[in-house]
Write a protein that binds this DNA or RNA. Structure first.
Lengths: 283, 283
DNA sequence: CATTTTCTGAAACAAGAGTTTCATAGACAT
DNA sequence: ATGTCTATGAAACTCTTGTTTCAGAAAATG
């Protein structure tokens, strides 16, 4: 579970102004900076003015930046000395070295899975295991990961379908879903309107929905009554990394397999046998 | 190894006055407080005056409390070597818990990137950056990741194509490649004959080939004169994890972007603008 | 296109942090 | 006891940080 500050940001993220969002983004990505840095520095890091920073904290419901810092500190003390891997700073020349890459990936993975609540994961797995049919959606860059997840799930249970990459045809495709189905959406920032639309649709048709996303969108998704699996995806430079998203997909599939139990294993073995036969030349 | 501050304190400890020692002691016990707290607070915690605190830092050879804080922060950021993460044993009941999953993923990532030689990575990036056209291939479960890599590369350079998932049509598709092209194959175990075939073909047509694979196939690929990016993918149970493969794809794309330099950035910005426009409704 | 509303940073202002000065309390030698 | 020297905190001072105000820019609205 994230910090209280993170939760507040997630709740109010859409109401924030663009520059406030920039700063809020940064705070979600690197909560430890709140303790280590002054508000002035935080503003400078994200390229907004001190004034905007002050406004953000007020808008989030704090009296003061000092309030924020005190809460953060208190939370750190409560959480105890979890050895967390720090996210490296952006280097000036923008060159990505191998060790830096490793550190970024480790930091994101660690945060992702240390914050993941097992009951949320199990709830998601339960919904997928128990669904009549399962639909997997991922737009743009997430499409590849969605396909990957679909294959993992196919190994474990029948009736797992991909929703096409073309968002325009989603209404038709989703029209054939029923309340006993489950929908998995992979959508990290930037969040598109289509996703909101689909989530709204899913809620009205009582489709069980699981959203794999990043902290800036958690609030939005949760408000649509989806089960949210939160992944940290930030890097010190401007790109995002999907590694933790893939890893989450992996874990989700494994948990589903676990839920289903023996039948999943049987299916997996069957598929392995088939694959072997095809490989051995009958193609 | 302790922090530099800790070392300095230990050196000069006896020379310090009693109240200074009280404060110094505290700093040795809880080095993280330096980042989180102001000098005034540190003084209050240990029951000494602000003046004493100021004197202590000066006596330790710093100009300023600010000096101390900056050094502490810097030390936090360039965290020492990542310690070796052991791969957990298979649990009897096959249940995947969240912490176990995290540990497996960390172990694979760490091994993958600690073994990765920067010159190999750079060679691969060079080939991709310099190629006329780039072809990306991934069969079966790797197909999703291949698509992901393709999108990453498309953001950075033109003429990046996917080779279809249907291996039967590969001969036709590859027929149109030239010696100035590059081919990226994502293929972890099990290794299929098709892949060997393609690699042989690539060698005879002098196609520059990069293979992202796992240690069991490294040798085979290398013998076909491909540039090999090795990924650790094992888990304590029978499944594989593709997390490090995705991460490798990410790093490769970043390195290519780096190679290409300004033009890559321009292209990326252009694409971001386009995406924004589409999102804003002109679809 | 004009008008209103919202957003934003510069600058003024208030509050707080860190340093320095200084007076005094205590330790020690004579 | 007296003088000397060191250690220490209170308070004055300076500089930085955080908040508020305000005017112009940008966006939304009619």
């Amino acid at each position: 579970m994230g910090t209280r500050l993170a939760l507040r940001i997630q709740e109010r993220y859409e109401e924030l102004t663009p520059s406030e969002q920039k700063l809020a983004q940064f705070l979600l990505d690197r909560p430890d900076e709140i303790l280590a840095s002054s508000a002035t520095e935080l503003a400078r890091f994200t390229g907004v003015s001190k004034a905007t920073a002050a406004r953000l904290f007020r808008n989030l419901g704090y009296n003061d930046f000092n309030d924020v810092r005190l809460q953060a500190r208190e939370e750190r003390n409560r959480t105890g000395p979890v050895q967390q891997i720090p996210m490296p700073q952006a280097s000036v020349d923008e060159t990505v070295t191998v060790p830096t890459h490793l550190q970024v990936e480790s930091a994101n993975l660690t945060r992702t899975f240390e914050e993941l609540r097992p009951d949320v994961l199990n709830a998601a797995a339960e919904q997928i295991a128990g669904a009549g049919r399962v639909w997997v959606a991922g737009l743009g860059i997430e499409n590849g990961i969605a396909r990957y997840l679909r294959i993992l799930l196919t190994r474990v249970r029948p009736a797992v379908h991909m929703i096409s990459e073309n968002a325009a045809t989603w209404p038709e495709e989703l029209a054939s879903t029923g309340p006993n189905d489950a929908l998995i959406i992979i959508a990290v920032r930037p969040w598109t309107k289509q996703i909101s639309t689909v989530l709204t649709f899913a809620r009205t048709t009582r489709l069980k929905t699981i959203v794999i996303t990043d902290p800036t969108n958690t609030g939005k998704a949760r408000r649509k009554e989806a089960t949210v699996l939160n992944c940290h995806v930030s890097t010190p430079w401007s790109e995002l990394t999907q590694t933790s998203v893939l890893s989450m997909a992996q874990l989700l599939a494994a948990t589903v397999a676990n839920r289903i139990g023996g039948r999943a294993k049987a299916r997996r073995d069957l598929i392995a046998d088939l694959a072997e036969e095809i490989e051995s030349g009958d193609i």
